[in-house]
Design a protein around this nucleic acid. Structure first.
Lengths: 180, 180
DNA sequence: ATCAGCATGTAAGGCGTTACATGATTCA
DNA sequence: TGAATCATGTAACGCCTTACATGCTGAT
């Protein structure tokens, strides 16, 4: 596995659950995972090829029935071991880049209304995301007894808890900016 | 300004407040800003040189008194305009990469205790960060009447609000993982 | 007929980190 | 004397995104 390329463990994690094509992997990343990690085709396909060479994944079969070829990947024993090592490593880097907070921090040179407006834009995004997460939560609650689902459920509640905190902060911040 | 290089606006934002050297800029980024943005010498110095060529900043003076040369930068009119445009742009991308959540999401293949342990590591980091932010908050509350400080204050309260939400989630998540 | 979705991949280029190089000053 | 801090910068390298290339299938 490449030293700092986290897309590898994302792929491994997904394949540990079921066999998937590169295209399927992209769809999964664009789902619930997108709230805390992103990935593009341009990183997924090269990673799959590298990982195959390293014996972390293997081609299950190549459906050429019909149109374009379709390569289904399966995780190998070595791949499962790599995933296990990563899960048991204590270090985890959480790299956050909030351009919204940057604009807030440096907003002192502009009128207060600019900052308030930027907060409102952020608020709208968060509100939208929160709605989506609440739907995910409802769906997951119905199948919580199934293995793995508790992990998905917890990432969703993490998102809900933090987005609700964001919204509380937005209200307070707007109030302070308008009052003082 | 480079199209997607956000370090430029960080530098511009800092210089809008006071003249600084590249070294000073790095120190500031490593302070309160580090909770929502990062930057290394390897990105700061080349950016300063580019921005000087573009007329966004200029060398105020070069102190060669004593040891190593010391280049103090000042923002120009063009730099202020660029900052203004950025602050008024509606789009702001908040790019989050939580390796902790990745481990949580894919934790289903390991024992529950591994996930609990990973949450505990995260919890400790957050607790440490929260303490630091609370100190920042206390110091800022004493000077809230000064211009700019309200913006710094709000980013700090954002951090506190979200870190407290993280801690609440950690307690709940550990409980659920131990009970079920 | 045309557009969206399925499906895999490459190429160019940007951004950023880490490590290195250099050297003075200050403090223990 | 040696370590930490001040101070600027480069080089190598890696990761990732965007855009492009290709072409089928199914629905409107």
């Amino acid at each position: 596995m490449a030293k700092d390329r986290k897309i590898d463990v994302v792929i491994l994690g997904l394949l540990a659950h079921e066999n998937l094509t590169g295209y399927d992997i992209k769809k999964q990343i664009d789902g619930a995972i997108s709230f805390f990690w992103k990935g593009s085709f341009g990183s997924i396909y090269p990673a799959l090829n590298d990982m195959e060479k390293q014996g972390l994944v293997k081609r299950k079969k190549t459906d050429t029935a019909g149109g374009r070829e379709k390569i289904v990947y399966q995780i190998t024993k070595k791949g499962k071991d790599t995933l296990k090592v990563w899960l048991n490593e204590e270090k985890a880097t959480n790299d956050l880049k909030y351009e919204t907070l940057l604009k807030l921090y440096f907003g002192g040179t502009e009128d207060r209304s600019v900052t308030v407006h930027n907060i409102e834009i952020f608020e709208e995004q968060v509100r939208g995301n929160l709605e989506v997460l609440k739907l995910y939560k409802e769906n997951l609650e119905r199948v919580l007894d199934q293995e793995d689902h508790i992990h998905y459920y917890l990432t969703v509640t993490f998102g809900i808890e933090t987005y609700e905190a964001y919204l509380r902060w937005c209200s307070k911040a707007k109030k302070i900016l308008k009052e003082k």
